[in-house]
Amino acid sequence: MIYSAADVPVWAAAAIAFFLLFGALLALIGAIGFLRLPTFYERIHAPTLSTSWGTGGIMTASILFFSIAGGRLVAHEILIGIFITVTTPVTFMLLARAALHRDRVENHPDVPTRAELVVSTIQDRASDEKGA
């Protein structure tokens, strides 16, 4: 079945256009940040722009379009949204762990080592107990 854009009222078309452009612009800003930011750990933040509201905006536009043009609720785009939200942290966490592992092997100075993390955790827990 082919849905026609002429069946959509003008206010809905404006909303669809807004959500589409909002999502696409966020994806573009994410890509620009991905190119501009200097280190790997800063760059990891940029693609989350396009996986959070970049995806959200375009999926909202798609749901609005197909629901209004078809005259009934078509919401299967929500599945893509949920899927992307749940899988992105898995990918990024695995990649970050791989990157930390590689940087530690090369003794990269900016990356906290395991020993430093153990010490700072023990200190934090001690100060929490003192405060409580």
Partner: peptide, 11 residues
């Protein structure tokens, strides 16, 4: 934490 841009869960 990860889907909030600006903070990332590393390990």
């Amino acid at each position: 934490i990860t889907s909030t841009p600006g903070s990332a869960w590393l390990e």
